[in-house]
């Protein structure tokens, strides 16, 4: 059983070393970590049985908030940008959440989509404010007042993002295991029971929703600073789809899966773009199909199955697949008339 934890521990140790081996990989890894943190938000919601097809909204709000801050007279200080961006995402998560927590299943997903598409149209249309489709250039921010050259800044950003990912992963686990986290997950398993207990499922869901929006915000600020540019693309439906894609790829509902999925996704995408520039979408699409059809538990599911086969303890692969699939089951029941 110990072996199950050796490989993850090794991975966590290896990742910080990667930039020494391949400097160009640093940026890819920062992007993967940024997306992984955002996907963590989507994953959290999956634990309550809700799938959002519009979480790119919070990602984009935080990114634009930090871009506006960097452009303003206050200037760009990384930690201020991060705090403000996350706060903006959390606040808008609260406002949007007040509406959408009344809905479940496909309606929840669609309302989120509608909100994100509206924000996308606004970003596209109000050219003189938002830079339209070309977005806003984000100057490299200072870190605690120190201005760094690109290479140093990226090194800082990489290790910071790495530590932040570990920290937020831990926070997410703590949240899900806390009393409120258990109530939150009960929205999935038995919402009525919550009501019998005298607890408002909406308010519980709202707490988780704001938390997930904040996580998307952190991801958005990180991506905006490493990319040096924010575009309406950050809010587009394909990006929301990408987040759900990564969550499923990694293993829906799994905290580690969010990061494993994001890393795999970014690497496949980078290599597909490099070596099959004409058909990178096809490669990703086929990758997704194979995962869904043959490994519905995602990469974490594959790993668990592998470990169980190797060490012959615990249930069969089939159980595990059924288990991980249960992560989204209530959404199905919710839509039945």
């Amino acid at each position: 059983m110990l072996a199950r934890y050796v490989i993850p521990a090794l991975l966590i140790l290896i990742v910080p070393l990667l930039p020494f081996l391949a400097p160009w990989l640093k940026v890819v890894l920062i992007i993967a970590l940024a997306k992984g943190i955002a996907v963590l938000g989507v994953t959290t919601l999956l634990r309550a049985g809700q799938v959002s097809f519009g979480h790119a909204l919070f990602f984009a709000i935080a990114a634009y908030a930090s871009a506006f801050l960097a452009r303003s007279a206050v200037g760009g200080e990384f930690f201020v940008m991060l705090l403000l961006g996350t706060f903006a995402a959390g606040l808008s998560g609260l406002l949007v959440g007040l509406f959408v927590v009344r809905y479940r299943g496909i309606f929840f997903g669609m309302l989120n989509l509608a909100f994100s598409m509206i924000f996308w149209s606004i970003l596209e249309k109000f050219y003189y404010l938002t830079g339209g489709a070309d977005g806003i250039h984000v100057r490299r921010p200072t870190v605690l007042g120190i201005s760094l050259a690109r290479a140093e800044f990226e090194t800082f950003l990489f290790y910071f993002a790495f530590l932040l990912a570990l920290l937020l992963g831990w926070v997410a686990l703590r949240f899900l295991n806390s009393p409120i986290g258990h109530l939150f997950q009960t929205v999935k398993t038995n919402e009525t029971r919550l009501q019998y207990l005298g607890i408002s499922p909406r308010r519980t869901l709202l707490v988780g929703y704001v938390f997930s929006a904040g996580l998307c915000g952190v991801g958005g600020v990180l991506l905006a600073t490493v990319q040096g540019i924010v575009t309406p693309d950050y809010a587009w439906w394909i990006r929301s789809g990408e987040m759900v894609f990564i969550a499923v790829l990694g293993g829906a509902g799994s905290v580690a899966g969010a990061f494993v999925g994001a890393l795999a996704y970014e690497l496949v995408r980078t290599y597909a773009a490099a070596f099959a520039a004409d058909i990178w979408q096809m490669v990703l699409g086929a990758f997704l199909l194979v995962i869904i059809l043959f490994a519905p538990g995602g990469m974490i599911g594959i790993y668990d199955t592998l470990m169980r086969r190797l060490f012959r303890n615990g249930g069969s692969a089939r159980d595990r697949d059924a288990e991980s699939e249960a992560a989204y089951r209530p959404a199905v029941e919710g839509k039945k008339p």
Binding site: A22, P23, W24, V27, V28, I31, L223, Q227, I229, T231, D233, E266, R269, T270, A273, A274, A277, D278, W280
Partner: peptide, 22 residues
């Protein structure tokens, strides 16, 4: 070596940097 701009900002920049730095 071609870099596809249509693949989106992230992929384009990643590939640009891979070519330059690697």
């Amino acid at each position: 070596t071609y870099i596809d701009e249509g693949a989106g900002g992230e992929s384009m920049m990643a590939e640009y940097r891979r070519l330059a730095e690697d």
